[in-house]
């Protein structure tokens, strides 16, 4: 039961903090020095949070769309030749440090939210693709046989069997992508993206721990909430399919 109450409480606390941040000033006061402001007010925290979430959501949606499409392509007969290569590229791509990808995207896209979006999209592709691939390829053989016996066309099989069965694993991939992106997006503020990283960086530059803490806390709570949300969705989908 506590597993359900805690996220709800954390979400409510977060909502309260974002709508009236200045009310929480006494909590953060001990972390400031020399009468520095305890709450970041240069930009509204709520709008930064929304913009942060929008960037992450857009990136996750794009990586899911492209990742799943690619996974479908390389598991069809026409794309089989690309399968080993796709696996290698995914494995290698995941070793690329996100900060480096972000920095390298700047000369192409300029400063702002663009490079962050692209870096998050590219980085997020990999877990989604990997999990979608696993979901599409690791079916129990009887399922495939039953589908064939029922006379389903390849397209019907894809939509009615393969994709629904891959859904729990796909959701797990999206969860990974979303949580990683949420943290990585803060680094985007080093290239002037509008994310909660702005608060943390302002704290780093003015040695104001209160800023660093509030930026970090908001992102951390968001990550925990999103993690829980996806896990709940996964459980629900699994339950509906009788996989438990």
């Amino acid at each position: 039961m506590t597993g359900r109450i805690l996220p709800v409480l954390a979400g409510l606390a977060l909502l309260a903090f974002l709508t009236a941040p200045t009310a929480f000033a006494p909590l953060f006061r001990p972390f400031t020095r020399n009468d520095a402001p305890a709450i970041y007010t240069q930009t509204s925290l709520l709008s930064l949070t929304l913009s942060h979430l929008a960037i992450v959501a857009l990136a996750v949606a794009a990586s899911t769309l492209v990742g799943v499409t690619l996974a479908i392509l390389v598991t069809r007969p026409a794309g089989r030749e690309f399968l080993p290569l796709a696996r290698t590229v995914t494995a290698v791509g995941q070793t690329f440090p996100p900060v480096a990808v972000l920095a390298l995207a700047v000369p192409v896209l300029g400063f702002g939210s663009g490079p962050t979006l692209v870096a998050l999209f590219l980085y997020g592709l990999l877990p989604v693709f990997e999990n979608a691939l696993a979901g599409l390829t690791c079916q129990p053989p009887p399922v495939a046989e039953a589908a064939r016996a029922m006379g389903l066309t390849p397209t019907q099989r894809l939509w009615q069997i393969d994709l629904p069965l891959a859904l729990p694993l796909l959701l797990a991939g999206m969860r990974l992508t979303a949580v990683i992106s949420l943290g990585t997006a803060t680094i985007g503020s080093t290239v002037a993206a509008r994310t909660l990283g702005e608060v943390i960086i302002a704290g780093l530059l003015s040695s104001n721990t209160a800023f660093v803490l509030q930026g970090g806390l908001v992102v951390g709570i968001l990550a925990v909430l999103i993690h829980h949300g996806f896990q709940a969705a996964e459980r629900r989908v699994r339950g509906r399919m009788g996989l438990a």
Binding site: I200, S207, V212, G220
Partner: peptide, 17 residues
């Protein structure tokens, strides 16, 4: 697990003070 959710930028920053 909770430690992992703290964004790296913030964790680095918090370590200083």
């Amino acid at each position: 697990n909770i430690l992992q959710t703290i964004p790296s930028l913030a964790l680095f920053g918090i370590m200083i003070p």
